[in-house]
Design a protein around this nucleic acid. Sequence first.
DNA 1: GGCATATCCGTACATCCGTGCGAATATGCG
DNA 2: CGCATATTCGCACGGATGTACGGATATGCC
Lengths: 122, 122
Amino acid sequence: MPVDHAVPINPAALRQARAGVLSRDEADRLAKLLGVLSDPVRSRLLFALVSVEELCVGDLTLALGDVSEDQTSYALKQLRGAGLVQTRRDGRIINYRLADGFPHQLLEHCLRQLLTITEEGA
Amino acid sequence: MPVDHAVPINPAALRQARAGVLSRDEADRLAKLLGVLSDPVRSRLLFALVSVEELCVGDLTLALGDVSEDQTSYALKQLRGAGLVQTRRDGRIINYRLADGFPHQLLEHCLRQLLTITEEGA
DNA sequence: GGCATATCCGTACATCCGTGCGAATATGCG
DNA sequence: CGCATATTCGCACGGATGTACGGATATGCC
């Protein structure tokens, strides 16, 4: 039987929780961005780019070592669509770099911290 | 025609990039965790829980306001599977809270910062 | 014991996402 | 102009994922 549950069980805590909840819009934007980050190829590409000025698709493929150039190209396209990387054409070569204003500390600090959390759990 | 691209175009930068790249294992773990976070319902549940001791499924559903109890239940199951939340049974009511050792600053600092980034882009 | 409530499960369904393959575009070189 | 290289595109396939619905389970109350 479907449940209505119109009556809060802990009204005080509920009020407090509501204050911290993101709006639907904010949560959607955040989810979209995290979705872009939640792919091994894409996150590794960002980590490859964080310590270097710029690199072309072929060299980025070599940097990862175990992906095809198609995968790299597709992943870069997603990252570019999310505004996380920029391109600079140099003849036939297209160089990718982290976008202007990209928070480098996000990679080096936040995401690496996330990694240590999962380490503890495993 | 498929491309081999055995020759790096920028060997120096490539060497530097390789140093920063995550291993396949690390990237997979990170991607899995980010995948759990990259859902509006799940992230909003975490933000609801960050400022409160614990809440039951029904009240969490009310806190979000625009999701079904099934959605809440399913999302909490995912979060629990990832080790991000814990449960405490109290009679018929099952209360959820952030897991022990959960980095509260991750929500309040890192993820909210991510939100501001996308604001600029939009 | 019998009923109401809180939560969860199993299934079915639609949808999205990453990948591989072949071909196309774009540029440089001779 | 014709060919080689770097990158991207279009398409189809398989796999994973979120949602809805009915029913199951667990607990408390009378």
